[in-house]
């Protein structure tokens, strides 16, 4: 009995490790390819940073544009999303749910369809069509639901109406309450939403590929470009840069959600201890 249980544990471990390896090996290979002098010769050809340098030389624009769009997208989703989530939470009831579903719709629709719809509606404005703002609109549409959802989730987990009433009973007006009570308490949601928005915006390809012009290329679009037209090593080096940008964001997101969970469990534990 004991033995077989042990055996099954090791089998499970082995399986898990195999799956991990299956997922990670291509990533490692690709990363290695980006710093290998000649991929077809192999590692014997030596390691080099020249591919990375070449990528930076060729594609710096796309990196900057991606960062610019991600940042602008973040600012806009914060300005629209946080008040929207607050208003939805205050409203409550059926109408709020319907509005929420409508806002979330772009997530369910393929990016290509959104892009097409945007081009059909606003593509005629040439100046707008050829500027990076056009891509930005697409990104905002796509990421806004994530910001609203994550702020809304926090708002519905704390009893913010009563908290606000508490603040009001102590004399605080609307803006003061917002600043001192509501915003600080939804900060975890805002933070999580922000990381999500930035990550999604930087990584977005579908929609962006449809919306981009030769002078407005983001990082993933450039990546596709380099896969199509460059040496494998350059493309790999490019991937490596992409990873270096996106992985810290992913880790931060993971840590944030872990610390939020820890906080809520601690909270419920202390609640149960008598005075």
């Amino acid at each position: 009995m004991m033995l077989s249980r042990k055996l099954s544990f090791y089998l499970q471990l082995l399986f898990t490790l195999l799956v991990c390896a299956f997922l990670i090996v291509p990533v490692v290979l690709s990363a290695l390819a980006g710093v290998t002098a000649n991929f077809f010769v192999g590692l014997e050809s030596g390691l080099t940073l020249s591919w990375l340098a070449q990528v930076i030389d060729l594609y710096t624009d796309t990196i900057y544009l991606s960062l610019l769009i991600a940042f602008a997208c973040l600012v806009i989703t914060l300005i629209i999303g946080v008040p929207a989530a607050y208003a939805l939470a205050r409203m409550g009831g059926r109408s709020a749910r319907i509005i929420e579903e409508t806002i979330v719709l772009p997530v369910a629709v393929p990016g290509l369809a959104i892009a097409l719809a945007l081009i059909l509606s606003y593509g005629g404005f040439r100046e707008f069509r050829s500027s990076w703002l056009f891509i930005l609109v697409g990104h905002v549409l796509y990421t806004l639901p994530f910001m609203i959802r994550s702020v809304l989730a926090v708002l519905s987990s704390i009893d913010f109406k009563t908290l606000e009433e508490g603040a009001a009973s102590l004399g605080a007006g609307f803006w003061y309450r917002l600043k001192t009570v509501v915003l600080p308490n939804v900060r975890p949601g805002i933070l999580a939403g922000s990381l999500m928005v930035v990550t999604l915006s930087i990584g977005e390809f579908n929609l962006t590929w449809m919306l981009h012009t030769p002078i407005t290329k983001t990082l993933p679009v450039g990546l596709a470009d380099s896969y199509a037209s460059m040496r494998l090593e350059v493309a790999s080096a490019y991937t490596l840069i992409f990873f270096i940008m996106i992985v810290p964001l992913l880790i931060a997101m993971q840590m944030l959600s872990a610390s939020n969970k820890a906080k809520t469990t601690k909270h419920s534990v202390t609640k149960n201890i008598g005075s």
Partner: peptide, 20 residues
Amino acid sequence: LPVEKRNIGMVFQSYALFPN
């Protein structure tokens, strides 16, 4: 007058203390 202008003190059943 809204609540913030009435100069009352209120103790809520759920306490409504500010967790932040």
